[in-house]
Computed example of a mutant assay.
Amino acid sequence: MSKHGKRIENAREAVERTKLYPLDEAVKLVKTGAKAKFDETVELALNLGVDPKHADQMVRGVVNLPNGTGRTLRVAVFARGAKADEAKEAGADIVGAEDLVAAVQGGTIDFDRCIATPDLMPLVGRLGKVLGPRGLMPNPKVGTVTMDVASAVAASKGGAVEFRVEKAGIVQGSVGKTSFGEEKLAENIVAFVDAVVKAKPAGAKGTYLQRVALSSTMGPGVKVDPATIAVAQH
C-alpha cells in the first residue's frame, strides 16, 4: 500500500463510523484526518426530512459564511450599460450580454457563479440547458437575479454559498478549508445549518434535520450530533 493510502487508512481508523460526535470534536477529527498535500475543502452534508419531488418540500437558498469559503470564486455578470460598469467596479471577473451568451453557448464557462440583471433574463434563459445542470443559472430566490449587481458580486466573492436539496433529501456545501482554525470552521458550519433550517419548507413533516456529516476532500466522513449545532430549530 502506498504512503498516501496508509495515511488515509489511519485517518479512517481514528473515526468511529456509527458514533455521533459533538460539533467541536467532529471539526477536530476532520482537520486531523486531512492528510493530503493540498489544502483540502471541508464539506458538509445534511440529510433532511423532505421529498424534493413535491414542490412544497423544495429547499434552496444562499448563506453568507462568516469566515468565507477559502477559495476565490470567478463571478460572471450578465448586464449592460451602467450596471455592467457597476459589476466591473465591484470586482466581477467577466461581464457581458449577447457576447457572453454566445461564449457560454460555445462551451466557454470560465466562472463559478453567475449573476444577471432582470432585464437580461430572457437572454440568459436560453442558457438553461447549459447553466442549469451545473447549478449556475441565476435565480432571484438566491439573490443572483438583481439590479444590485455590486452587492451580489461582493457577496459571491466574500463567501456566499448557494444550497439546494438533491433527490435523496440531501443538501451539501463547502464550509471552508482544513487550514481554517477550528472556531472559524465551526462558525461557518453553524451559519450553513442555520440557513438551511430557516429555509424549512411548509410541506416538511416530522424531523427536518435528520443527519449531519462532515468530511474533507480526501478524509473520512464524520457523523455530527445535530443537537450540538446551536441553531434555532424551526
Rank of each mutant, 00 (worst) to 15 (best):
A204Y: 05
M147N: 15
V63D: 10
L209M: 08
K177N: 14
K83A: 06
A34R: 15
E98V: 13
D56S: 13
A232R: 09
S156V: 02
L23T: 07
V63H: 13
V231I: 09
Q57M: 13
K88N: 11
R60I: 03
L123D: 01
E182G: 08
L46Y: 02
K157Y: 09
A195N: 07
A230G: 04
M121K: 12
A45N: 13
A202P: 15
A97N: 08
M137S: 08
Y21C: 01
V42L: 14
V27W: 09
E86S: 11
D56F: 01
P118T: 08
P52N: 07
K31H: 13
F111N: 01
H54S: 14
A230E: 01
E187Y: 11
V190T: 14
V124P: 11
V231Y: 02
G169Y: 04
M58E: 08
K6Q: 14
R113A: 13
K3G: 15
A11W: 05
D112I: 06
L131I: 00
Y208D: 08
D119G: 10
D225T: 13
F163M: 05
K167W: 04
G181K: 05
G173T: 03
A230L: 08
K28R: 12
G107I: 03
K53A: 13
K88S: 08
A213F: 13
N10V: 12
E25F: 07
I229P: 06
L120T: 03
Q105L: 11
A168C: 06
M1I: 11
A204E: 11
T228W: 07
M137Y: 06
I115Y: 02
V153P: 01
E43C: 01
V231W: 00
G203K: 12
V77N: 06
K223M: 10
Q210R: 15
A36C: 07
P138C: 11
D112S: 06
G81M: 06
A227C: 07
I94P: 01
K28I: 04
